[in-house]
Each structure stands twice: as structure tokens, then as C-alpha cells.
């Protein structure tokens, strides 16, 4: 049974899942949900995710939403195919994957997403970017990246010397962020920069990045 992913090719949540599916060499069908028409808030989609947010995945009888739950499910179910994204054979490595996945979700995402939102999404919606929000989050993100810089001077990837979901989950927002004037936050930290260049050059991501066009970016 083919996997069905409901979402949009420029959405950060959808692409987070697509990258993982490519890393796992899994076939899937992308079923478009039109955000600009508000389809995610309409009944057919709301039955897949009552919160009205993309993405959602259908795997046979199972429907899941929340991008990071979907990638965890896919990585565990298919742990023997493609890239091992959760280090399921090594308790210590898999513990560190869990820690850095949460760091992305709890520390990195809350700082980077408002910057991307203000810079990219607000103009599309005809709002002007709120510079105070941008400034506060640039400061927050800088502090998070200082910790990343220290961490990445000790290991090649966030959880150790292996690529995992912890790194992968950073790709969608950072890709858009690198097109904003604040990209220097990454580029001026040598280990973070090298890490970014490494993870963003993986074939599974490049395939997905082609579809990530959004407004003027």
C-alpha cells in the first residue's frame, strides 16, 4: 500500500516528512492541500488533522499528523531500509538523537520560525514584517547557535558522528532562513556553517528543495 502524504511542497512540515521518506527510499504520493484556499481548515482535511495543519500521512488504516511524529514513525517502522535515522541499534546514540530532536523542536524552531514567518509569509499575506519580533528572535537564535557551534566542534552532527532525524528536522526552516538577510548567523559560525553545507547537500534534501519556492524566495 503506497503512502499518502497530504501537504504542500513548500510547507516546512510537509518537506520535513518528504526528506525523511526519501532518506528511507520509500515511495509516496503527495496529495496537495491548498493552504491559500484554506483547504486545511475544511472538513475533508480536518478529519485527518483536527488542528487544521499540514502535513498528515496515511499508511493503510493509520492516519498521523505532526511532522516530527510522522518522521519518527517512518524511521522506526522502516529501520532496516535506507539511512538509519534513529540509531536503533545503539542505546546511547539513540538517546542523543532524542535529545537533539527535542532541542530542534523546543529551542531552534521557536526562534527561527518567527523570523522566516515575518520575512517570507507576512509579505505574502499583505502584512509588513514586524521588526521587533525579528530582532528578538535573531537574538534568541544567536544564543542557540552558539551552543550548536560548541557542540559541532566536538562532533560532526548534532547527536554524534552520524546523520540522524535530529539534523534532518532542521532542514526546512533553515533552507528558507538562508535566503533572508540574517543568514550570517549561520555563516559566521564555522562549524555550524560546515554542518549546514553538509546536511543541505544530501540528495534526499536536494530533491525536496527544488519544490520549496515561496513568495520571492
Amino acid at each position: 500500500m503506497a503512502l499518502k502524504l497530504y501537504g504542500a511542497p513548500m510547507s516546512t512540515g510537509t518537506t520535513r516528512v518528504m526528506i525523511a521518506l526519501h532518506e528511507k527510499d520509500l515511495d509516496f504520493e503527495l496529495v496537495p492541500v491548498d493552504l491559500f484556499a484554506g483547504e486545511q481548515k475544511e472538513p475533508p482535511f480536518l478529519s485527518k488533522n483536527p488542528f487544521g495543519l499540514i502535513p498528515a500521512l496515511e499508511d493503510g488504516d493509520l492516519t498521523l499528523f505532526e511532522s516530527r511524529a510522522i518522521t519518527a514513525y517512518v524511521a522506526e517502522k522502516h529501520n532496516e531500509t535506507g539511512t538509519d535515522l534513529i540509531r536503533h541499534r545503539d542505546l546511547k546514540e539513540s538517546a542523543l538523537v532524542k535529545v537533539w530532536k527535542e532541542v530542534e523542536s523546543q529551542q531552534y524552531d521557536p526562534a527561527i520560525s518567527p523570523i522566516v514567518y515575518q520575512h517570507v509569509v507576512a509579505p505574502i499575506r499583505g502584512q509588513s514584517p514586524d521588526q521587533a519580533i525579528i530582532d528578538a528572535n535573531v537574538e534568541k537564535l544567536g544564543k542557540v547557535l552558539d551552543i550548536y557551534e560548541a557542540r559541532l566542534s566536538e562532533s560532526k552532527y548534532l547527536s554524534g558522528d552520524f546523520y540522524s532525524l535530529a539534523d534532518l528536522h532542521h532542514l526546512p526552516f533553515t533552507y528558507y532562513f538562508m535566503k533572508t538577510p540574517y543568514a550570517s548567523l549561520i555563516n559566521e559560525r564555522p562549524h555550524v556553517k560546515a554542518w549546514w553545507e553538509d546536511i543541505s547537500s544530501r540528495p534526499a534534501f536536494k530533491k525536496v528543495a527544488e519544490g520549496m519556492t515561496f513568495g520571492d524566495l
Partner: peptide, 21 residues
Amino acid sequence: TIEERGVVEQWVEVEAHNYHP
């Protein structure tokens, strides 16, 4: 099962992203 675990993950994420902030 792996499927039940997936649903647990989903609602842990809901807590983290929708309820907690």
C-alpha cells in the same frame, strides 16, 4: 505496536507544540 507508538508520538507532539507554549 509501531502504529500505536506512532499515535503516542503524535499526541506527545501535540502537547509540545499546541498545548505547552
